[in-house]
Amino acid sequence: MYDGGKIIIGLIVGVGLLLSPFIYDAGKAAKAPDPELTAKAKEAKECVAETSYMKSSHMHLLDEWRHTVVRDGERYYKAKNGKVYYKSLQTTCLDCHSNKSKFCDQCHDYVGIDPYCWTCHIEPKENK
């Protein structure tokens, strides 16, 4: 090879950077956290929408609620099963899901999301 030393060093650095997740993650237990349900949430059995939708799209629902409440003053949400919910993060969502650290934060931290809910809303006080 011509200038082989430089090329091979460059190759090792480049490939090493691209392979860094393999090295970084090696030997780490990185199981996805399971959101924990409170007794009240378990009792209610169903949320405002089905679990799979809530898992992937709760942010969309919350965003929609915010828009419609703040801009249009619509305070009531009719779920698919006909039940009507009061659109409120603090009084409806957190009524069941009062365990913010185990229900919200675990997964948000896991995928690196820092939602700005609590810059306006009051964080629930948890009894730890």
Binding site: P21, D25, K28, A30, A32, S56
Partner: peptide
């Protein structure tokens, strides 16, 4: 078309740890 990204991350990390899972 949102997906459950915690499950996506589980899959990705599984690939990098050579213990693949398909949630």
């Amino acid at each position: 078309l949102r997906v459950d990204i915690t499950a996506v991350k589980e899959l990705a990390i599984g690939l990098f740890k050579f213990s693949p899972t398909v949630p």
